[in-house]
Design a protein around this nucleic acid. Structure first.
Lengths: 211, 211
DNA sequence: ACAACCACCAATGTATACATTATTTGAATT
DNA sequence: AATTCAAATAATGTATACATTGGTGGTTGT
């Protein structure tokens, strides 16, 4: 693997998993020492992160980890709603129903996955990711998929803003199940509506637990 | 201005204005000779272009100018419709009506701008750009605006695919005027519908003149 | 003659040295 | 004492030298 890619992956994970807090200054020399590569691949990695929006150019000098402001959560969710509702509609229009029927089943039973044994909720988030991937595949639109991918980078960071709340996660699983069902039934209107409802619930929960 | 930025701007313009055709291989050494800077800023510029989607990594080695396939025009417009309809809705909800009333007037009279004197249609596209900018400002959503900005890069390239057609441009101006009017009237439903209609007309016109 | 393998070459990936610029610190003057 | 200007320093921006990898072409063997 190329050094620039290793640096990019490492930094990206550090930012997404909050090991590098928003506002942290990322100096090239410091990173090149810490990651054991020269400045050139570090610069390349930082450029990629900046293009993704995970870092921002510091006024004229250096880059810093982007802020995740609660003030802008509503903006993030406005874009998310626009993209995911359309994606759900298109998926309902084009999907192989069996795939989503299976996901519906799994999501209906997902309550069992949310246990004290797994505080990271890896299993649950895996399943939610599977639904996203299935929607992407059903939609079959590279541009829309790409836009969603760019967005999800930020959503993973946002996830850590809210406190862990098993009850909310179980509700979210049910809402995901409803979306999967609507898509399986090839009903775009319901799929879009269920997505709208789910995202509104998610946003309100986030805002209520963080403020 | 930094050398990497100059290289980026120059290459971006070359691609958008079709001086560099899709598929063209962009070798670092060749570009560094042509633009008179070393490979380092060239690499930075190419990385930025690749992040934007204007260039793509050539299987393992080098980058090429991205293809603009007619096969994917519908996908591009699917994303465009999702974003612009939502933007129009939100703008209708939040705008200062005067601004859009003025734009409505200007767009209504835009037919005069489309003359043989200006084959590049600079004046008309300027006005269309003003409407986009006004919508962005009224929406006031950084994430949505950014997503639209990423999209418009590709749309400018697509514009050159279709033959110049004054009649279609005059229709498009009327459609834009309808969008501006709906926003000025603070009617989200009509604004979204007018946008949908406009984009469908644009896509069908593009497909009919290129196939 | 065709296919496979090896060697050479060219282009990218990385490191480092050098240039430039912005920030900070210190000193001098008001 | 505070403010401003200048010099030093540290960080980024650029160039170039070196390393590595992938591709191409030629040769050899079947």
């Amino acid at each position: 693997m190329r050094a620039s890619e290793r640096a990019y992956v490492a930094l990206r994970a550090d930012i997404i998993e909050w090991r590098l807090a928003p506002g942290t200054v990322l100096g090239e020399v410091e990173l090149s020492a810490r990651l054991g590569v020269s400045r050139t691949p570090i610069r390349e990695a930082l450029a990629k992160l900046t293009a993704e929006g995970l870092t921002e150019p510091q006024s004229g000098r250096g880059v810093v980890v982007s802020a995740i402001s609660l003030d802008h959560l509503d903006e993030l969710f406005e874009l998310r709603t626009a993209l995911e509702c359309r994606a759900a509609e298109l998926a309902a229009d084009r999907c192989e129903p069996e795939i989503f029927r299976t996901l519906h089943q799994q999501l209906t039973n997902a309550g069992e996955l949310i246990t004290a044994d797994d505080p990271s909720r890896a299993d649950y988030y895996q399943l939610a990711g599977d639904l996203d991937a299935a929607v992407d595949a059903a939609v079959g639109n590279h541009y829309l998929t790409q836009a969603l991918k760019n967005l999800r980078v930020h959503l993973v960071r946002v996830r850590r803003l809210g406190k862990d709340n098993p009850a909310r996660l179980r509700d979210a699983a049910r809402e995901h199940a409803a979306i999967a069902l609507a898509i399986a039934n090839r009903n775009p209107i319901v799929a879009s509506a269920a997505t709208t409802v789910h995202l509104d619930n998610s946003l309100r929960h986030l805002l209520s637990t963080t403020s």
